[in-house]
């Protein structure tokens, strides 16, 4: 890990750079290799969120079936792992779609590995969603603040993913935004239409 974070004093500092100066940081990261670090970032953020969501499920389970006892602790861990796997799949699929869109529509020059590595950092704003859920846990009155944090998390994630694609493929930000948002959405809509049509015929 030390070799990977060599540009920065620590991984924590790197996260700060990604959040505050995304473009510059991603330009530096563009030169790095391997996707292990991306996988690690995805794991850290999605696992934390999954554990928090899982603790709610565990408490509900304990409320309904108090005899579950200490075994309820497995729910947050399992939920964290489940969310990590789901997020990893989502990350791979959306990165692939964005990469293909950037390559075919805007003559992007980047590689899929590079897109995958850089877009993994778009999970960093998930800490805002975690904070929103923690605030909700403290008091339901903080719902409005939580909603604002969720919205901020979403927009920051889209921003970081777009920056990542723009840097990886050396294309404009607006084009990258199209690849990150419009292309996957269009594909999902087309797939859903196809499924519905086939379902209707069957």
């Amino acid at each position: 890990m030390i070799a990977v974070f060599s540009e920065y004093r620590s991984f924590v500092e790197k996260l700060g750079y990604v959040l505050l100066r995304p473009e510059e940081t991603m330009l530096k990261m563009h030169k790095e290799e391997g996707i292990l670090e991306g996988l690690f970032v995805t794991f850290v953020f999605t696992f934390s969120l999954g554990v928090l969501l899982g603790s709610w499920m565990a408490k509900l389970l304990l409320l309904l079936f108090p005899s579950v006892g200490i075994y309820a602790l497995s729910v947050p861990v399992f939920s964290g792992l489940l969310l990590f796997v789901a997020a990893a799949v989502f990350w791979a699929v959306t990165s692939l779609i964005s990469h293909v869109a950037a390559k075919t529509l805007f003559n992007g020059r980047g590689s899929f590995a590079s897109v995958l590595r850089l877009t993994s950092y778009s999970f960093v704003p998930l800490f805002l969603a975690v904070l929103g859920l923690l605030l909700l846990e403290i008091s339901g009155l903080l719902l409005f603040v939580s909603i604002l944090l969720f919205a901020a998390c979403f927009f920051l994630m889209v921003n970081l993913a777009s920056t990542a694609v723009a840097v990886a493929h050396e294309i404009e930000y607006s084009k990258a935004l199209f690849c990150v948002v419009i292309a996957p959405l269009t594909l999902v809509c087309l797939l859903l239409t196809l499924i519905l049509l086939l379902g209707g015929i069957a």
Partner: peptide, 23 residues
């Protein structure tokens, strides 16, 4: 940048510890 990173790390750490302990 270090401060921002530490804040992120602290939030994640607190959330994980809180989730496990509160459960």
């Amino acid at each position: 940048y270090q401060v921002a990173g530490c804040v992120i790390a602290a939030i994640l750490l607190v959330s994980v510890v809180y989730s496990i302990v509160s459960t």
